[in-house]
Amino acid sequence: MARRILVTGGSGPVQFVERPADNEHELQTVLLTNPALMPAEDLGLDDELLVVGRETTLASGSVDLLCLSRSGELVVIEFKTGPQNPDFRHALAQVIDYGSDLWKLGSWTEFDEGVVHRYLTSRHVDPGVKTAQDLRAAAVGTWGLDDTGWQTLATRLDQVLITGDFHFVVAAQRFTEQMKDSVRYLNETTRYGKYFLVEVIRLDGLEQRAYAAQVVERPPARTSASGTASKATQTDFLAAIADPTYREAVSELFATVSALGLILAWYSKGASIRLRSPDRTEPISIGWVFLEGGQWYGARHITLGVDPGTLKSHPSLAPAVTEFCQRVSRVQGGKPAAGVLSATVFEPDAFTPAQPQLLALLSDLQKAAAAIPVSGTGSP
C-alpha cells in the first residue's frame, strides 16, 4: 500500500502520495545530488555527512557515493539500478569490492591523496567544499573542527581503513525479504564492516514532488567483545592526550597493534595489548596503556612486558616473551615497572623517541609467536 504524507502550514495542507519512480536512475540522481537525504542518524553516525567521493573511480569500478562522518567513519554507498535480485547481488558485491580497494590504502593520508584530492578537483564536487585543497580543510570547513577534533577524526579514519570497518550502504526503491536476509547474514557473521539497506522513495503532490530515504535494514547493536577495542574508548583515550606528538605516537601504536593481529582489550581506565597463544584459547597480555594517573600492578603510561605468573600458563610462548621483555628493558628511556610485572614503563617523554624501536620489537614477537606450531592440546 502506498504511503501518504500530509504537509500542513504555508498556503494550506498538501497531500503527497508515494509513487514508483520512472526508473531507478531517477532516485539515484536525487541521492547523488542531495546526499543530505541519507539518514545519517539511522546509520549510527553523528552530524551531517561530508561527501568525499561521487562517481569516483577505484580499482574495481566507480563508487556512486563516498561519505565521511565527523567521527571518522567511512560510508560506501551504491545504488541498485534494477528491480531484480541479480541487480541487488551486483550492488552488494560492488560495495564489498570498493571496500577492498579502500582497505588497501591503509591510512588517511593515502586516502586523502588517492581519493579525496580527485573528488575536490572534479566536476562532481559540492560547492561548499570546492575551495578546499585536502580532506582536513574540507572537514574543518564543514564541521568547524579544532586540532583535537581533527586528530580524533584522522585517528579513527586510520583505524577504519586498516580494519576495513566501513559502513556499506545499498540504496534502492524496494528490497525483498530475501535481500534483507542476505544483509542480516553479513551483519551477523562479519567481524568488521556494517551493512545497511536504504529505501529511497518518490512522493507526488498536486504540483510538487518530494523524496524520502529510510533505513530498512541495519546491523544489531554490537557489544564490545573481549579482545575488540571499543571505538568510543579508543577515541576518547586519544582525545584526552594533550601533547600532539605523544598522541600521534600512541595512535601509531594502536594502528600497529591492529595491523599485526594483536588485540587491544579495553577496560575502564586503559587497555591491555594481548598476544594470541598456541597454549590456551585466551590470549596473554604483553603490554598496557594508560592515561596519566591510571595503573595496574605497576603498569603505567605505555608499559610493555608480562606477568610472570600468567606466562607459566603459556609455556610455548615463554622463550619468545622472555626475550621480548629483555629487549624492551634495554630500550633507552624505559624504567622497570614496580611490583610483580616483568615489564618496562615508558612515560610520554620517553615513549615518543622510543616508539619506532618498540613497534619493531612487537613485530618481532608476533612473528616468533606465529612460528610456534599449535599442538591442539591446550587447555580451554
Rank of each mutant, 00 (worst) to 15 (best):
P35L: 12
L31T: 09
A232L: 13
W150C: 01
L275I: 05
I286P: 02
V374N: 08
Q208H: 06
Q208T: 10
F346H: 00
P353A: 11
I162G: 04
V374H: 08
G376E: 08
D181V: 08
A343L: 07
D236A: 13
R218V: 03
L260E: 09
R202H: 04
T322A: 13
T235F: 07
Q295L: 03
P219W: 00
L135N: 00
G144M: 06
L68E: 02
A318L: 07
G376S: 07
P356N: 11
G10K: 15
E78L: 10
T155H: 15
S258F: 03
G227Q: 11
T176N: 07
A265C: 04
Q332K: 15
E18Y: 12
E252N: 13
V374K: 12
N34I: 06
I284C: 07
G298L: 08
I201L: 11
K231M: 10
H25A: 13
G12D: 12
T33M: 09
P35Q: 06
A337T: 10
G193K: 02
L58K: 07
T310H: 04
M1G: 14
D158I: 05
S313P: 01
W143E: 03
L359I: 12
A213P: 07
F168N: 00
R300F: 09
R202E: 12
D158F: 01
Q133G: 13
L153M: 06
Y192I: 07
V289S: 03
S379H: 12
A138D: 05
N187K: 08
Q326A: 14
S122I: 09
T190C: 15
F237A: 09
V51I: 06
P35V: 05
S316I: 08
I5W: 10
L50I: 03
